[in-house]
Computed example of a mutant assay.
Amino acid sequence: MTKHISNIPSWSMVIILALLVGFSSCKSKKKLTKSSDAPIVTTTQEVEPIEEPEEKPEVEPVEKVLSKEEKLTNYFNAVATSSSTASANASIEEALTMFGRPDAPVLIVIYKDGSEAGYDEPTTIDNYLHYLKDTKNNKAVIEEIVYDDNGQIKELVLKK
């Protein structure tokens, strides 16, 4: 057997050993092809830094300023849909700050015949808010608001 190996030229032995070592060190052909597929890029040019766009200062969203009518409607809904008596009472107290006095009259239109309107029995804003709390029903919409000289509501007309 020694004779048989000695007949192979020495340079071919080196190639065979190199191939054996090369293939035994590779774990898979897949890794070998991946590394050989990646292009090697070398440049001697100076790379200019990429300028990021200037950061614009964040614009805070403009809060919509609610009209007094919208605020009052929100209070009516909060009282009618409150989950507890305590939260309903808190909403009632806040709503009453919009009125000049807690006994400000509230008129409720129940029907209209042309230019004449029929009203339910007059009540006060305090009684009406407690009615909303008890019935949990807010079907009336604001038809007219009368303000005093201080900007407080002095009379309210609702429509069912």
Rank of each mutant, 00 (worst) to 15 (best):
M1D: 02
T2F: 14
I5V: 01
S6V: 13
I8Q: 03
M13Q: 13
V14C: 08
V14F: 00
I15Y: 10
I15C: 10
I16K: 14
L17V: 06
A18E: 05
V21F: 03
V21E: 06
V21R: 02
G22P: 03
F23H: 09
S25R: 14
C26T: 11
C26G: 13
K27S: 14
S28P: 02
K29G: 09
K30H: 10
K31N: 12
L32N: 01
K34N: 15
K34L: 14
S35M: 15
D37Q: 08
D37K: 00
D37E: 12
I40Q: 02
I40E: 03
V41Q: 12
T42V: 14
T42I: 14
T43I: 00
Q45A: 14
E46M: 12
E46N: 12
V47A: 11
P49G: 00
P49W: 15
E51A: 13
E51N: 13
P53H: 10
P53S: 10
P53K: 13
P53L: 06
E55Q: 12
E55C: 07
K56D: 06
E58H: 00
E60V: 15
E60K: 01
P61W: 04
V62Q: 05
K64C: 00
V65H: 10
E69V: 07
E69M: 09
E70K: 05
K71R: 05
T73V: 15
T73I: 15
Y75N: 13
F76Q: 08
N77Q: 14
N77M: 13
A78P: 04
S82A: 08
S82N: 06
T85M: 04
T85G: 11
S87K: 13
S87C: 11
A90I: 10
E93P: 01
E93M: 07
E94F: 15
A95T: 04
L96K: 00
M98N: 05
F99Y: 08
F99T: 14
F99W: 09
R101G: 07
R101D: 03
R101I: 06
P102S: 06
P102Y: 05
D103C: 07
D103Y: 00
A104I: 09
A104R: 05
P105E: 02
V106L: 10
I108P: 14
I110D: 12
Y111A: 11
K112C: 02
K112G: 05
D113C: 00
D113I: 00
S115C: 09
E116M: 00
E116D: 00
E116Y: 07
E116K: 05
A117N: 04
A117L: 06
G118W: 15
D120L: 10
E121Y: 06
P122R: 08
T123K: 00
T123R: 01
T123F: 00
I125F: 01
N127T: 13
Y128I: 06
H130K: 14
H130E: 08
Y131C: 06
L132D: 02
L132Y: 09
K133S: 04
D134M: 12
N137W: 04
N138R: 10
N138G: 02
A140P: 06
I142V: 03
E144Y: 12
Y147G: 13
D149L: 12
N150V: 15
N150S: 06
G151W: 04
G151E: 02
Q152S: 01
Q152R: 13
I153N: 02
K154M: 01
K154Y: 02
K154H: 08
K154N: 04
E155C: 05
L156Y: 03
V157M: 11
V157K: 13
L158I: 03
K159V: 14
K160G: 06
K160H: 11
